[in-house]
Amino acid sequence: MKKHRRMTLGRVMGALRYVPLVLWVAFWGAALGWILFASFSTTREIFSNNILGSGLHFENYIDSWKNNNVSHYFINSICITGASCALIILISAPASYILAKKTFLGRNLVLNSFVVGMSIPQVMLIIPVYCWFVRANLVGHLITLVILYTTLNIPYTVFFLTSFFATVPSSLAESALIDGCTEGKAMWKIMMPMASPGIITVTIFNFMNIWNEYFIALIFANGNDKIRTLSMGLQNMITSMTYTGDWAGLFASIMIIFTPTFILYLFLSEKIVAGITGGGVKG
């Protein structure tokens, strides 16, 4: 009898665990879902609590895309993020390989500097860097953002990949060396493919960070539509739409920005999760 009661109590507790999970998902589902519906309604319907009252209004999307240089923002974000992610790996992977596989004087110094670099607040660096770019007349060029995003993400990437390379067995590369492969070739042709899960994970992580970056874009790429990234473009659109009272367009532009990363997340959520727990937890 007592055992029976305990069993039901356990089952009730087991079911209760789902309540907070459902609440959390329900909250975000309601908020994002409502914005999705509102983005297809008219501003008047939004204010009279009657969303989707007159069917789907795709023109919210078309108008906010056309009236703002959304295509431009997308191209800018894609170019900047793509170039930075590629450069980060090109610079970080060889360095991580050396740090993981070689012992030399100053190895710990280099590794520790990268770890310290990860926690230096960006505001400590940004003022002199801004001076250089002003003097080099580079503020307002896309290349500025590529340079900054690449260099600022190197410490984390090196740190992440060093621990990853350390787990990749070097026997295959060593046998290639004995067979006369140069060490550079062994690294790019043997070690890199073996480390590709780590490289993909950290690249997805970098991609998400750079794609959504705000502070540096605000300082270096907010002058005109030619250089605005999606974050800056969205902010610009939102400011003008709250001014003109175009709430339907405002929610449509949120969805325009939200959808690509959401689709990416549907496919890559496992990898993204691995990117966070892999480097964040040293324990």
């Binding site: 610079i91 060889p94 360095a95 390989y97 280099v110 670099g117 900054l148 260099t151 090196v158």
Partner: peptide, 16 residues
């Protein structure tokens, strides 16, 4: 192989 990463670090982190 290590140089470029260290150089980037010195230019963007250490010196600023």
């Amino acid at each position: 192989y290590l140089g470029p990463a260290v150089l980037c670090f010195l230019i963007i982190f250490a010196y600023p």
